[in-house]
């Protein structure tokens, strides 16, 4: 699996963010390093929602954090409106920060428990001001209203709100600086199912209202499909399959994508998950397998998978890219597709 290569990068679109050959490593002592992200390339068009799925430890959160430079980048570029975020330092980096905001997984621990939520939401504005360089309480009230929190609760503290409400407050805080890109790292996985739909709908509304571009990370394949235009499937620091959300779920070609879809407790009849059985455990990212990183668990693996790393290649002429030596053939209504 798992490939490098720039095939999935699009040139014809209004691309807002382009990540090329991103590499992130974390030292773990005694000279060993965790190869968290190893050469991943993708882009996000303006107004698009890009979903990233994969098991824990596949590097999806590291990708997100690298984009806003919450961790060091070892190699590659992150191009945002002509600036390489991987190289920027100091004031140059700081001045771009309002454009890229993030929402975190645990809504309660990501809010300072000692602050009133009005202060939590306004902190970014207190540093930056809005477009005019200043800000007013009415701006905070407008933000609170737009995420569905009654402004009269502005003087309450995070513990007085439920998990779903805290996530709304987190979203209001992220939106305060009028960002272009909103990075959502598992924003609904800590929420109850009945509240999850509220937050997902809110994100869709905010995206339309403020013209946001979203990077949405989740391990829940149904949630990712619901919010995304395009999806990347990651495995052990590499991308295995990238494509249009509907296309990818209808014609999964990578054995790993199939395995993920087959593992859903309630597989949908419209999704072909034959040959999607995997065994074993995720190998250590300290010593990732040579060749295709999925070779230890793949039932299709042959000699070539243990020596050569597959490159990302386009599937047919749709928006669908794949890094696999032996992609699973898709049969549609009995006919073998290419």
């Amino acid at each position: 699996m798992a490939g490098s290569g720039h095939a999935p990068l699009r040139e014809d679109l209004e691309v807002l963010l382009t990540v090329r050959d991103l590499e992130v490593e974390f030292p773990v002592g005694k000279g060993a390093v965790v190869h968290a992200v190893s050469g991943i390339s993708f882009d996000v068009a303006e107004g698009e929602t890009l979903g990233i799925v994969g098991e824990s430890g596949c590097g999806k959160s590291t990708v997100a954090k690298s984009i806003i430079r919450l961790n060091d980048i070892k190699g590659g570029t992150v191009d945002y409106q002509g600036n390489d975020l991987a190289q920027l330092e100091g004031e140059d980096l700081r001045s771009l920060r309002p454009d890229l905001q993030m929402i975190f997984q645990d809504p309660i621990s990501s809010l300072n428990p000692r602050r009133k939520i009005r202060q939590v939401i306004s902190e970014g504005l207190a540093v930056w001001g809005d477009e005019k360089g200043s800000w007013s309480q009415s701006r905070i009230e407008e933000l609170m209203l737009s995420v569905g929190i009654d402004p009269k609760f502005g003087d309450r503290r995070p513990h007085q709100f439920s998990g779903g409400q805290c996530q709304r407050i987190g979203i209001a805080r992220a939106l305060a600086l009028d960002p272009k890109v909103l990075i959502c790292d598992e924003p609904v996985s800590a929420l109850d199912v009945s509240v999850q739909a509220q937050v997902l709908n809110l994100l869709e509304d905010m995206k339309k209202r403020y013209g946001l571009t979203l990077l949405f990370i989740s391990h829940d394949l149904s949630v990712v499909k619901n919010v995304s235009d395009r999806i990347i499937v990651m495995y052990l620091g590499k991308a295995c399959e990238i494509g249009n959300a509907n296309e990818l779920y209808e014609n999964p070609r990578h054995p790993y994508t199939r395995a993920l879809l087959a593992a859903i407790p309630e597989p949908a009849p419209t999704v072909d998950v034959s040959e999607g059985d995997i065994s074993g455990e995720l190998p250590s990212p300290i010593n990732p397998p040579v060749g295709c990183r999925f070779n230890t668990r793949c039932s299709h693996a042959t000699d070539v998978c243990f020596t050569d790393e597959p490159e990302m290649q386009r599937v047919g002429d749709s928006d669908h890219y794949l890094a696999c030596h032996h992609p699973v053939a898709v049969s549609i209504n009995g006919q073998q597709a290419v």
Binding site: S162, G164, V193, S194, V195, A197, N226, L261
Partner: peptide, 25 residues
């Protein structure tokens, strides 16, 4: 009934509007 409607389903096309349950427990 509402719970079943509020869960995103894998067979639905992306951007299907969900029907959340209003309020909280």
């Amino acid at each position: 009934d509402a719970l079943l409607r509020s869960i995103p389903r894998i067979e639905q096309p992306s951007h299907t509007r969900l029907e959340p349950i209003p309020g909280r427990p």
